[in-house]
Design a protein around this nucleic acid. Structure first.
Lengths: 358, 358
DNA sequence: TTGCTTTTTTGGAACGTTCCAAATATTGTA
DNA sequence: TACAATATTTGGAACGTTCCAAAAAAGCAA
């Protein structure tokens, strides 16, 4: 640890420079300075110029808190709560949201619930205290509709993103989960697979039920049975993927394909397969969901369902802005399309059944 | 798109409930209510109880803006600017920072510079306007010391994290980059490698020079030459890793090992190797830096240099808090240890030289 | 009851901005 | 030059809190 204490700490301004200071410095009233700041047209060019110079000279920094206090609150701040800051898909969503927000002079405040109700509630409370104009939220498992109701009633519009609270009638932007998994599963079936498992996800999340429904749609349509042990819900992570695959194959070693709740879980499946000497793409077909950046580079490259994070970001922001400007706008539910990306991890399987018979 | 417009939008409170409203509702003065809110001991239990009930009944939400206005600014808000929200290491840093901050009743505002000076400046400005208590910042390439100076002078303490602005004398928390790459390179040398390349990183970032220096330390110590073409700086990404490896092997097909600036680049190298039919761990040794969650699961598992993101988070937050409470505290530079994690990607190489001679 | 101390409550100023109505400066016209 | 019309500038109230000094209430001893 170095301590270059020969260095002088610059003089900390005891007090921040205020609009009043600028006014005094330039010899005008604070009202005039305020007008310049707001870009009012009713101030003469000469004055504007002098004031701008003074602002520069004094190093004045606009104080949004004070301004917002007078302007009954709003100041281009929105609260964004996702499930995890370091889960790749959420990170990409935040990335997209940041770009779009800043373009529109909105400052997003990002945080994660870490999938717990307690943290979610704490964050919502803090954000309200900081007077955000509204929320974009990926509700933590177990979130009740009453919570969202409370927000809305308090004057905070919100848009649910990626997931939605069951039986809630609030705006939402969700993926076409059902169709996504339907298509993915159909693809597996077309390749000849019969014993297909559905791995991962949590029953407390709307995603899960939609994706599972899509899976079941395809299985039922093809007249394939799904023993209860073929459905293995487990919380999102690579390690969970490994564990789940092991359990699945113990339950029925004859399983030839797994549809995963997410790419992250699929990565776990890939690594567990390698460890067990199972060749993915030959002995076992694997399909993910999300299409993370890494999924192109896994070995074999992962077949997965792509949902554009940018679409989530764009739609949810647009929707939130609508409610912020007019709280009475009709409640809308947007569905983001899901697209099957066929790569190598689901290549034609080695099956010992030549025809369809069990 | 569904529109369940049979649903009634709850009545939006026209105006937010204020402390005054609560006071009137309970029949006391706003001062008393304020005291209750601050947990003052000079308010009687009976009153406290009545006020708390009233707060609950009215649905009052504390207004930090107004409070902070009176309390000369500070309100437990800090600005955190990293290089990218969706780069895995940064994401993990944010995750850790969030956990620690909330524990200490600090609300972090996260954003990314996207490696551009313009966005960084815009964010700093906005955060100042929102009156954050200080900054934790991973400076964008090309950041000048004068920028940090301006912040500090305006009363915003800051801590640099992961990188530091050259010739700046501001607090910083950085990894032991030089030692990390020194050890990694030494490991490669011990395994018998002679033609070792250093891949990735940007010359505008302090990290790069430190890691490169560590690399050179080890190479020089072993008396190994490093042709200019062995050093291939390029901006952080998987695709860049692929491109870089190709260029490197074109320059000298005899290269048997690459030390990468980051795990992300190493992933690119891994996938490019596979494409070119090069067996990593046999024909080519690869070492990364960061130890991302995925690095255990790549094939082969990636040998890399681990630096705990939690340490970065803990130290930088602690340091920032020090400066926030006493701006005159001596400037400190903390170094986070780097630890070589030996896995499979650098297994003993096939070399045609049996002894050391060129 | 009185006077004294201690506890509890309170009104009003302050924070830094915006907004408004009113004051002042500038311009054009007769 | 004088007057209206217009352009520009300004003081003060307001936003919702905290803080302070001071008022009111409560408790206690004589």
């Amino acid at each position: 640890m170095h301590k270059p204490d020969n260095w002088n700490v610059p003089d900390f301004a005891g007090r921040r420079v205020t609009l009043h200071d600028v006014a005094r410095h330039v010899g005008m009233s604070k009202s005039t300075v305020s007008l310049v700041l707001q870009g009012s047209s009713s101030v003469s060019d000469k004055t504007r110029e002098r004031v701008l110079r003074a602002i520069d000279e004094t190093g004045y920094v606009y104080n949004r808190k004070a301004a917002a206090l007078r302007q009954s609150g709003r100041h281009g701040l929105i609260g964004v709560i996702v499930n995890g800051l370091n889960t790749p898909y959420s990170a990409e969503l935040l990335n997209q949201l940041e770009g779009l927000s800043l373009e529109q002079d909105i400052l997003p405040m990002f945080a994660s619930s870490s999938e717990t109700l307690a943290q979610q509630e704490k964050l919502l409370q803090l954000y309200m205290e900081h007077n955000v104009g509204g929320f974009i939220i990926c509700p933590a498992p177990g979130t009740r509709s009453t919570l969202l109701d409370k927000l809305w009633r308090n004057g905070f519009p919100l848009v649910q993103v990626m997931r939605e609270v069951p039986f809630s009638q609030f705006p939402a932007v969700v993926a076409d989960n059902r169709r996504g998994l339907y298509e993915a599963t159909r693809h597996l079936i077309k390749l000849g697979h019969r014993k297909i498992a559905f791995l991962g996800g949590s029953e407390d999340i709307s995603d899960y039920h939609e994706r599972l429904a899509g899976f079941m749609d395809a299985m039922n349509e093809a007249g394939l049975s799904v023993p209860s042990g073929y459905i293995y819900p487990i919380l999102q992570s690579r390690a969970a993927g490994r564990k789940a695959l092991k359990a699945l194959l113990e339950y029925d070693p004859g399983i030839t394909a797994v549809a995963c709740f997410s790419d992250l879980m699929a990565y776990g499946v890939l690594s567990q397969s390698r460890e067990m000497g199972i060749k993915v793409g030959e002995d076992l077909a694997v399909i993910g969901f999300d299409d993370l950046a890494d999924s192109r580079l896994t070995h074999p490259a992962l077949t997965t369902v792509r949902v554009e994070a940018g679409d989530f970001a764009g739609k949810s922001l647009q929707l939130l802005k609508t409610y912020m400007s007019d709280p009475q706008s009709p409640v809308t539910r947007e569905v983001i399309p899901a697209k099957l990306m066929i790569r190598e991890s689901c290549g034609a399987p080695h099956l010992n059944t030549s025809s369809g018979g069990e």
